[in-house]
Design a protein around this nucleic acid. Structure first.
Lengths: 190, 190
DNA sequence: ACCCAAACGGAGCCTACCTCCGTTTCCGGG
DNA sequence: CCCGGAAACGGAGGTAGGCTCCGTTTGGGT
C-alpha cells in the first residue's frame, strides 16, 4: 500500500529492515511502546546504527508497524461496507479498530496523534482508514442506527478513549471491550 | 486528610517538601508527567538527593499531588450528594472528575492505575473518592436516570477514557469535554 | 552552648538515546 | 572472475536523565 519508491534497496538492507520490524513488533508487544531500541537492534542481530538508519526516530518505527495496521483496518472496513448492513458493519469495524489499536501498551496514544496531525508521514494510510470509518459512520447514521449529530472526529475520539481504557485494564478479556463498546453505543442513561 | 503520622518532621524538611510539591505541580503542568525531576529539584532550590528522600519515585511525587485532588473530588461529591438531585449530581461530579484528572498531560494514566490497584500508597484517598462516585452512581440508578446494569468500575473506566481522549486533543475547550460526556451518557445509537 | 539525629546536596554510576565515521558488503561493469 | 565504489553496516562515544550513596550541614532538644 505504501513504500517501494526511489531506487531499489540492497538485499542486506531489505533483509535487515524486515528483521527489525519483526523484532520491534515482538518487543513492543512485550514491553510497550517505550521498550529499549538497543534491545530491538540486538534481538534483530544488527547494530544500533543500522536501526537508526532505517528508522531515524522511535516514531518512524512505530509508524511503520502502525501503517500496516491502518491498511488492514481500511481493507476490513471496505469489506464490511460491501457485505454487511450499516449498523453491524460499524459495530464490527469498531471492534476491529479497538483490537488493532490495543495490541501493545501505549499504541493508542500513537494512534491518536496522526488522527488529526497532517504532518505525520503516517497521515496517508491514516487518512484512508479514517475515510472508511467516516463512511461506515455516515451509512449507519443514514440508516437510522446512529444519531446524526455525531461527527466523525467525536466518534474516533470516543472509540480511542475506550481503546485506551481497555489498554489500561490488566484483565485483557475480549468480553470487556465488547461490554464497553456496547455501553458507548447505547449510552449510560435510562 | 492523610499524612501527619509518625514523629513530627524538622522545620526545614517540611519547608522543602512544600516547595517541592509546588514546583512539581508547576513543572508537571508545563511539561507533562514526564518532566525532568532534576529540574523540579533545581526550581525548588534543593538538591536532587533531597527530592528523592522526600519522594523516592516519580510515582510518589505524582501521588502526593494526586491525593489532594482525590480528596477534593471526594468533598465535592459529598456536597453534590447532599444538595443536588441524583441525576445532575452525577453529571456534575463527572465533569469535576474529568477536570481534576486532566490538569496535566499524562495524569489520566496515573489516575487509572490506583483505581483498581490495591498496593498503591494512594489507594486510601482513591478509595474514598471512588466510594463517593459509586454512591453518586447508585443514586442516579435508583432514581432511574442511569441504567442499572452499569457497574461502578465500568463507569470509572469509561469516564477515564473520555478524560484521556480529552487530554490528547490539543484544543482544550471545556465545551469539548461537555460534548463528549453528553455522548457517553446518551449513547451513540438512535 | 553543646550534641547528634535528621536532613541536605551533589558527585558519580547506570541506562538509554542518538550521531558520527571508519569498516565491510553488495553488485554492476569490464 | 574480479574490481571499484556506492550503499550499508556497527559500535564507540557524547549527552541526558534517573537514582544512590555518603560526607557535610543544621535544627532543636537538653
Amino acid at each position: 500500500m505504501h513504500e517501494a519508491k526511489g531506487p531499489p534497496r540492497r538485499a542486506d538492507a531489505r533483509r535487515n529492515r524486515e528483521r527489525l520490524l519483526a523484532e520491534a513488533q515482538a518487543t513492543f508487544a512485550e514491553h510497550g511502546t517505550r521498550a529499549s531500541l538497543e534491545q530491538i537492534a540486538t534481538r534483530a542481530g544488527v547494530g544500533i546504527g543500522t536501526l537508526y538508519r532505517h528508522f531515524p526516530t522511535r516514531q518512524d518505527l512505530l509508524e511503520a508497524l502502525l501503517g500496516a495496521r491502518f491498511d488492514t483496518l481500511t481493507a476490513t472496513g471496505r469489506t464490511l461496507l460491501a457485505t454487511r448492513p450499516p449498523g453491524p458493519a460499524l459495530t464490527e469495524w469498531t471492534h476491529s479498530f479497538v483490537a488493532a489499536t490495543t495490541t501493545f501498551r501505549g499504541l493508542t496514544a500513537e494512534v491518536a496523534q496522526p488522527l488529526d496531525d497532517e504532518t505525520t508521514r503516517l497521515h496517508a494510510s491514516c487518512a484512508a482508514m479514517r475515510e472508511v470509518g467516516t463512511e461506515l459512520l455516515r451509512r449507519a447514521q443514514e440508516s437510522g442506527t446512529v444519531r446524526t449529530d455525531v461527527t466523525p472526529t467525536e466518534f474516533f475520539v470516543l472509540v480511542a478513549g475506550v481503546a485506551w481504557a481497555h489498554e489500561q485494564g490488566l484483565p485483557d478479556s475480549p468480553a470487556r471491550v465488547a461490554r464497553l463498546l456496547d455501553l458507548l453505543f447505547d449510552g449510560l442513561h435510562r
